[in-house]
Amino acid sequence: MWVIFQKEFAGYLHSLIAYMVIGVFLTAIGLLMWVFPDTSVLDYGYADMGTLFSTGPYVLLFLIPGITMRSFAEEKRMGTMELLLTKPLTDWQLVFGKFMAAWALVAVALAPTLIYYYSVYQLGSPTGNVDTAGVMGSYVGLFLLSAVFCSAGMLASSFTVNQIVAFMMAAFLCFLLYTGFDSLSALPLSTRFAWVLKQVGIVYHYESLSRGLIDSRDVVYFVSMTGVLLMATKTSISSRQW
């Protein structure tokens, strides 16, 4: 698994994808947080990082499918999938190695935003008047959310040999998981299941974490959602055996 992780991560670094992802993410978030007046912290007047955590998921919704779209689609198109699967490597190791590499890349893109926390911390009046617990909870939420997005992207990529198709499927799946279920629960048709539907979506748990309390139920939700998606990916990879 470690070997696959290294190969994938090196692949991101070699192929500009990593720089694109980090560059685009930081530019978008930086502009939204500090420059555009509608969402800027400076104009808002409160020492708060809400902008990062409310717009971050939407930026990731497009970026992560871009990272993961080639993971299996490209291997299948090039025929290297056959090469990998005839090596002494289990399907799980392959899926997990690739997932970890994508997630690690997102983590690297997220890490520099910790500087924003420092800035906001210094801007607070008095200095340090920030809801630190809320920010840290939100970071945990964002990090776990990107794990779900990465595994959804892996799943989409395992279905097709076409990267564009993989990207669109992944973006849609991420969107559905993020706000889709939340919106569905608001439909008058589904009042009986509204509570359940709401909890299937990511938003419910993400917001809960952002309040600064790391509730094990939310963590379990993110971990199991990632697990289910990776399991589906593994099943999709193994389906050649049927």
């Binding site: 090039m78 025929g79 056959e82 090469l83 289990t90």
Partner: peptide, 20 residues
């Protein structure tokens, strides 16, 4: 399967490689 794969050397048709 895993033990067998360790003892086999395989060159698939069309020789797929990581060209990058």
């Amino acid at each position: 399967r895993q033990q067998v794969k360790q003892t086999i050397g395989y060159l698939p048709e069309h020789n797929p490689l990581y060209t990058d």
